[in-house]
Amino acid sequence: MPTRFNLLIGSTILAVLFVAAILGIVWTPYDPMLLDMMNRLQPPSGQYWLGTDEFGRDILSRIMAGAATSVGIATATVLFAVVFGTMIGLVSGGLRGWFDRVLMAVTDAVLAFPGILLALVLIVILGAGGMGITLALAIAYMPAVVRVVRSTVLSVREKEFIEASRSIGNSELYTLAAHILPNCLAPISVLATSMFGWVILAESGLSFLGLGVPPPAPTWGNMLATSRPYFEQALWLSISPGLCIALALLGSNLVGDALRDRFDPRMAVA
């Protein structure tokens, strides 16, 4: 029961987020970049639902445009990490030998850099901006996918049905794609869901540090960073972007938990 309840709440949050993000690309109540010095630091009202910022820009419009940026980057990052991570993990676990050993060494090296540390430095090399951040985060998160896929491959590759596929003359590659890959989908989907939240958090953190998508383009992280001087007089500036990051993270945690409980009954403790 709690699992279904969590799944419902989590997926509702994520659905609203995606709708807001897609809507944010095509339409916002106001132009998110439009300066209006007559209406700066307005508290939330019927006209400006979430208030206006220090340049009179509508916060709701900026939150929606920021959702488009954050959700876009997070989706692209997760897709990139999952697609390439799965390919590498499959090949690595399937072929083993020196190829596997080299790849595992690289994975270990990347995993030795905790948190967003590696992404921070990769952004210096790749350049700030949507593309650089996506690549940097994807490289930082990919090893986790490689690990999960590889260990799944290793655990199923000796099972009878895999042996059967080989013995009827299917090639190693076909066996990997047709019989081993489907077994990896459950752990991948659990990981990808949680990863979506981590990437949103990491991207916001980088933006907060000024290393994300550069202003004036709104992101939740840079909105939070620029709200700071107006903290006491305009609290609403800090509330809405922070709440959005927290909700996105909560949504992906809840859905991730529910998926894990479903696919891995041993872990189902709720």
Binding site: P2, L201, E232, L235, L243, A246, L249, N253
Partner: peptide, 29 residues
């Protein structure tokens, strides 16, 4: 149990920089 788990899930979903800002506002300012 439900309350503890719910509280824990909420806590781990809060970005540190946001919680920090709110704490600064409340206890500092």
């Amino acid at each position: 149990d439900f309350l503890v788990v719910t509280l824990a899930t909420l806590l781990l979903s809060v970005p540190s920089f946001w919680l920090g800002l709110l704490m600064l506002l409340l206890f500092g300012l």
